[in-house]
Design a binder for these strands. Structure first.
Length: 199
DNA sequence: TTATTGATGGTCT
DNA sequence: GACCATCAATAAG
């Protein structure tokens, strides 16, 4: 068995649309008790000067300021009056960018994740097949916003993908209305843990 | 199976 | 006041 290889900040110090596909297959680990882990199977990139759909497009606000900071921080936002969604910031400091974590395959702590979702009868593939479901399964909320993933106090780790034995699909992003859509959604092809909803 | 809709509140104009 | 990087329940086919 190869030793676990962790991603570092350098991995995220790049354009979000370049980081996003490389995150597929990586494992997000939350060191709670019990430990929770899921393999990322769907992500979306946001940011840059041309991305009208990005929260950062109209400049810095209280909500989106983390996107303008350095790479490797959590950007967690509240939406639709009831849901949290989590991103990891990308790009160099001063340039807004983030990758939205849209879906994952539960790998460890599955029963806890199912309980966190307040549904004891759902299938494994429905535990984290959407950005808000993923947050609910991992108990991520607004208090996690701004967390430095690579800081001393972080309880989050990202394990690099051991295998790249999968095909990457690409599409427009879900739930956004834009005149000239950017194909910045990336997912593992034919993977049943990918979200089902469309815009 | 797909399509539609109500829930619910922060953020920004 | 309008819009939302969503979800689950319900209706329709």
């Amino acid at each position: 068995m190869p030793r676990e290889k962790y991603l570092d900040r350098k991995f995220f110090t790049n354009e979000p649309e370049l980081v996003a596909p490389k995150l597929l297959g990586a494992t997000l680990v939350v060191e709670s008790s019990p430990k929770l882990a899921l393999e990322l199977v769907e992500v979306e990139a946001y940011g840059g000067a041309l991305d009208v759909a990005s929260h950062a497009f109209r400049g810095m606000t209280k909500r989106n300021e983390v996107m303008f900071g350095p790479a490797g921080f959590l950007y967690v936002y509240f939406t639709y009056g009831m849901h949290w969604c989590a991103n990891i910031t990308c790009s160099k400091e001063g340039v807004p960018g983030a990758v939205l974590l849209r879906a994952g395959m539960p790998a460890e702590g599955i029963s806890t994740m199912r309980r966190n979702r307040n549904r004891d009868d759902i299938k494994d593939q429905d535990i984290a097949n959407g950005p808000a479901k993923l947050c609910q399964a991992l108990k991520v909320d607004g208090s996690w916003n701004g967390l430095d993933i690579f800081g001393r106090t972080s309880n989050i780790k990202l394990v690099a993908n051991e295998s790249t034995d999968f095909e990457i699909g690409q599409s427009n992003r879900i739930g956004v209305r834009e005149e000239n859509p950017l194909p910045w959604r990336f997912f593992i092809k034919d993977n049943i843990f990918v979200s089902k909803y469309r815009g």
